[in-house]
């Protein structure tokens, strides 16, 4: 693992592919976050809402994406974390977390971040500004 101090624009952080999305994970996230909207855990409720099945909490996916930066907290921290929710995440989807350094000036590192599913479709995307301090 490289230090962030050394990373150059155009370089990726090591990407992470998650285990297929499972119901128990979403139940855990519901409990830990307090977001008990049943479209994330109960099939009938998702269907009533017009969905083909339960979908992951957008914030679960955003939370997962943050872990690309977790190994670097001794160097600095996430100052800004901006995400647009672009697509739904269903059970058994296989998600990959990506971050590429877009630009850096002094202590600011701006990354383009996204999560793509097994079909290469972006489900969330945005920016992380990591500050070396």
């Amino acid at each position: 693992m490289k230090n962030l101090v050394e990373i150059k624009p155009g370089e990726y952080l090591e990407e992470i592919t998650l285990n297929p999305v499972s119901r128990i994970e979403l139940i855990k996230y519901a409990g830990a976050s307090g977001d008990f909207n049943p479209i994330h855990t109960i099939d009938e409720e998702a269907e009533k809402a017009g969905l083909p099945g339960i979908i992951a909490h957008g914030m679960w996916t955003m939370g997962n994406l943050g872990k690309l930066f977790t190994p670097y907290y001794e160097e600095g921290f996430i100052r800004d974390y901006q995400i647009r929710f672009a697509g739904m995440v269903f059970l058994n989807d296989v998600l990959t977390l990506k971050a590429i350094l877009e630009e850096r000036n002094d202590e600011n590192l701006v990354f383009d971040v996204k999560v793509v599913n097994q079909d290469g479709k972006e489900v969330i995307k945005g920016k992380v500004r990591f500050v070396i301090d």
């Binding site: 957008g58 800004d80 974390y81 901006q82």
Partner: peptide, 15 residues
């Protein structure tokens, strides 16, 4: 029910 979460942005002074 039925809300769509469109965007989310955090800003931190420190962790």
């Amino acid at each position: 029910k039925g809300l769509i979460h469109g965007e989310e942005t955090y800003h931190y002074e420190r962790p």
